[in-house]
Design a protein around this nucleic acid. Sequence first.
DNA 1: CAGCATCCAAACAGATACTG
DNA 2: CAGTATCTGTTTGGATGCTG
Lengths: 148, 148
Amino acid sequence: MDRTIVDNQQDDLQKKLQNILKRTGPLLSSCPIRNILDRFSDKWSTLSIIHLGDAGTLRFNELKKRIDGVSQRMLTVTLRTLERDGLVKRRVYAEIPPRVEYELTDLGRSLLVQIIELGDWASNHSQQIIQARERYDTRERNVVMAEL
Amino acid sequence: MDRTIVDNQQDDLQKKLQNILKRTGPLLSSCPIRNILDRFSDKWSTLSIIHLGDAGTLRFNELKKRIDGVSQRMLTVTLRTLERDGLVKRRVYAEIPPRVEYELTDLGRSLLVQIIELGDWASNHSQQIIQARERYDTRERNVVMAEL
DNA sequence: CAGCATCCAAACAGATACTG
DNA sequence: CAGTATCTGTTTGGATGCTG
């Protein structure tokens, strides 16, 4: 038993990776993993989940105010999708003027954990990425200049 | 000291969430976190990283064969972006016919860990999401039928 | 207030043809 | 082999106007 914790973590990751690859079959459209990763595709999904996770419950316009730059249309579309996927719960109150409240479901909260970890990674590595971009762009510019 | 491990994990998440929110300022376009999360936007980035992580080093067409459905153009664009961000290393051999090999950088491998965790979450919860969608769509259909 | 419907511009992505 | 260039259909998303 000379396996370290790091070894076991590696094994764990390796196993998960194989599982993902197995599930990423030739039928890309029906791939369940792709399907969920696509939730990260649109900018607003992640931000909506983050803000709902932070605030607990929010009305439509409260959420809209928090997510800078989102149009009404896109927030509506985003919330519908999240609701359909069972990540967000929508509660309508029969009042005038109408009141609609949104909050995360248990499933949504478990996804929030993943998003936070991802955001944390991004936060911790953004500097490295920005520097890499600058290096790359400088190199490009030099090549272009050499061609002139 | 009656705080449980779960409590501390909650604190940790809470702290990370606050940090993310702080960094998600009004200037959305320049937000470093958004910038990195956008790497998840396009379908091919994640798949490229997963396959490179699995195989180690791959030539352009080897990678293309593994990623079902990707066009040459999109794979090229994707790899350029990943290279620019310092996630993928591109090595060109001065041979004829040309040989180009791609592999993850250290930064890319650290992102791979995050992608695997995310994919693992997706894999474990895809069933719940599919069921939620079916429930939602059925409900929709009923509403429509009631209106007829 | 919360939203749906429509229009339109811009970004995206596939197919095709060509090149060092 | 590993691209680049171009053309084009599709998708996206903002702006605007209207409704219960």
